[in-house]
C-alpha cells in the first residue's frame, strides 16, 4: 500500500512537471519575446526592455522556467502586467468564487445523478427508467451556457426572482450562495445527466455479474442486493467519471462566469487574454491544471478504498 502510494505520488509530480513545461513552452518560448508580445507590434525597444526587466523576463528559458516554478512553490505567481499587482492576490480574490461554484455544482450533480441512476437501474425498462433516460439524453445535449441563459430569461427576466448576475461577496453568505445557485444549476444539469447514465450503466453491468446471482440465491431481495453488492462495485467506473467531471466543471465554470458576470478565475483569464497578460494566463492555467491533476490523484486513492484488489498491489 505504501509503495503504491509513493508510485502514485511520483507520477503526480511527474505530471505536474510535464504540464508546467508544456504551459511554459507554449506561452514563453513559442511567442518569442513575451515582453514584446505583450506590448504588441508598435512598442519601442526600450519600453520592451523595461517591461522585460520589470516582469523578470530576462535570462535564458531554463532559468526563467526555474524562476517561475520556484516562485509558484513559494506562493509567488509573478506580477500582472495590466493590474500591476501580484497574480497571487488576483487569484486569491477570485478563487473564492470559482472553487465554491465548482464544488456547489459537483454536489448538485451527485445529488441529482445518484437517485436518478439508481431508480433507472432498479426499474430497468419501466416508465421511470424511460423517463430518466429521456431526460438525461436531453440534459447531455444542452450546452450549459445556453441553459444558463434560459435560466436567466426565466428567473431573472420573466419571474424576477433573482438578479441576472453579479456577485455580492461572501460577507453575506446567503446572498452569495443565492448568486451562485443559478450558475451551479446550469453547470450541474448536463454533468448530472452524464453521471446518472454512467451510474445506471455501471449498475446494470454489475447486476449481470455472478456474485449478484449468488447474493440473490442467499435470499437477499433485489433492493438489498443493489445496496449491499452492486453499488460499491459500480462505484469504480462512476468515480472515474466524477474525476473527469471535476475538470469539466472547472472549465465550465470559466464560461458560466461570463454568463452571470461572476468575478471568478474564468473572467480573470479572459480579461488577461484580451490584454495579452501572459503572466496571469500562465499562472492561472497552471493552477487549473494542478487542481485537475490533484483530483485525479484523489480519485486513484479512492479506487483503492473501493476495490480491495488494488490495495496490495
Amino acid at each position: 500500500m505504501r509503495r503504491a502510494l509513493l508510485t502514485r505520488l511520483l507520477s503526480l509530480i511527474l505530471s505536474l512537471v510535464a504540464a508546467s513545461v508544456v504551459i511554459f513552452v507554449l506561452l514563453q518560448a513559442v511567442p518569442g519575446d513575451p515582453a514584446a508580445f505583450m506590448l504588441g507590434t508598435g512598442a519601442q525597444p526600450d519600453t520592451v526592455a523595461a517591461l522585460r526587466a520589470d516582469l523578470g523576463l530576462e535570462g535564458s528559458l531554463p532559468v526563467r522556467y526555474l524562476d517561475w516554478i520556484g516562485g509558484m512553490l513559494r506562493g509567488d505567481f509573478g506580477t500582472s502586467y495590466t493590474y500591476r499587482v501580484p497574480v497571487a492576490e488576483l487569484v486569491a480574490d477570485r478563487v473564492g468564487v470559482s472553487l465554491p461554484l465548482a464544488a456547489y455544482a459537483l454536489i448538485l450533480t451527485v445529488v441529482i445523478a445518484v437517485p436518478a441512476g439508481l431508480i433507472a437501474a432498479s426499474r430497468r425498462g419501466a416508465a421511470a427508467d424511460w423517463g430518466v433516460m429521456g431526460a438525461t439524453q436531453l440534459g447531455i445535449a444542452v450546452p450549459n451556457f445556453w441553459f444558463a441563459m434560459l435560466l436567466v430569461l426565466l428567473f431573472a427576466v420573466k419571474l424576477r426572482w433573482v438578479s441576472a448576475g453579479g456577485f455580492p461577496g461572501w460577507s453575506d453568505p446567503r446572498a452569495a450562495l443565492g448568486a451562485l445557485t443559478l450558475p451551479a444549476i446550469a453547470l450541474a444539469l448536463p454533468q448530472a445527466s452524464i453521471l446518472a447514465r454512467v451510474l445506471r450503466g455501471a449498475l446494470i453491468d454489475t447486476m449481470g455479474q455472478d456474485y449478484i446471482r449468488t447474493a440473490r440465491a442467499k435470499g437477499l431481495s433485489q433492493r438489498a442486493t443493489i445496496v449491499r453488492h452492486a453499488l460499491r462495485n459500480a462505484a469504480i467506473p462512476v468515480l472515474t467519471i466524477m474525476g473527469l467531471q471535476f475538470s469539466f466543471l472547472l472549465a465550465g465554470a470559466i464560461i458560466i462566469e461570463n454568463v452571470f458576470f461572476l468575478p471568478g478565475l474564468g473572467r480573470l483569464i479572459f480579461q488577461a487574454i484580451t490584454q495579452r497578460d501572459l503572466i496571469v494566463v500562465q499562472s492561472v492555467t497552471m493552477l487549473l491544471v494542478f487542481a485537475v491533476i490533484a483530483v485525479t490523484f484523489a480519485v486513484d486513492l479512492a479506487y483503492a478504498l473501493a476495490d480491495p484488489r488494488l490495495r496490495r498491489r
Binding site: 447474493a215 440473490r216 435470499g219
Partner: peptide, 28 residues
C-alpha cells in the same frame, strides 16, 4: 410471490455455481 421466495432462498434451498471466482463479491 417474491417476498416468500426471500424466506426460502438461502434458508431451505441454497445454490452454488460453476465459477467460484465470479460468484464471490470482490469487495467484501
Amino acid at each position: 410471490p417474491e417476498r416468500d421466495w426471500l424466506r426460502i432462498r438461502g434458508a431451505d434451498v441454497a445454490m452454488i455455481f460453476q465459477e467460484p471466482t465470479l460468484a464471490l463479491n470482490p469487495v467484501h
